[in-house]
């Protein structure tokens, strides 16, 4: 697994690891039912403290994405839908949207604000629809 974690970024290492693993699972790079590397192997491969890996695995377990089986290892839950196809279709759509916004000279913060605004408008619209 080629994951590059950046200790100097503002995000804690274990959070970065959780995000990367979630993404790999969502895109089907790691399949439902598959075993994740042992804490030791993960720590040695990524050159991070094993406690960081344990914390990430526990987080994923808390979210119901993986299962820690005592003595056997860490497994991706069978129930996790690998929405791989959907994610694969979504990635290029996101990429082209961002490319177009970038050509308008928007910063990352601008883009994020725009997106959150749009999502909030949709949420409101859905709420109104439900009440109607």
């Amino acid at each position: 697994m080629t994951l590059r974690l950046n200790p100097a970024s503002g995000t804690p290492l274990y959070v970065q690891l959780v995000e990367r693993l979630k993404h790999s699972i969502a895109t089907g790079a790691i399949k439902a039912g598959e075993q994740l590397p042992s804490v030791r192997k993960m720590a040695e491969d990524l050159l991070i403290n094993p406690n960081t890996v344990i914390r990430a695995y526990r987080d994923l377990e808390g979210e119901g994405i993986v299962e820690l089986r005592h003595g056997s290892g860490v497994f991706v839950q069978q129930s996790v839908e690998a929405r791989a196809d959907v994610m694969r279709k979504a990635e290029p759509i996101m990429r082209s949207a961002l490319d177009r916004l970038e050509s308008l000279d928007l910063t990352e913060d601008d883009v994020r604000r725009l997106m959150e605004n749009e999502l909030a408008l949709r949420r409101d619209a859905q709420r109104r629809k439900r009440r109607a």
Partner: peptide, 26 residues
């Protein structure tokens, strides 16, 4: 890393390389 995953042996290390310190220190 191998040392600390191996039956809880302990490591103390001094370094200038903060990137490395940040990755592996508890």
């Amino acid at each position: 890393i191998r040392t600390v995953t191996d039956q809880g042996r302990t490591v103390i290390f001094s370094s200038h390389l903060l990137d490395e310190v940040e990755r592996v220190s508890d």
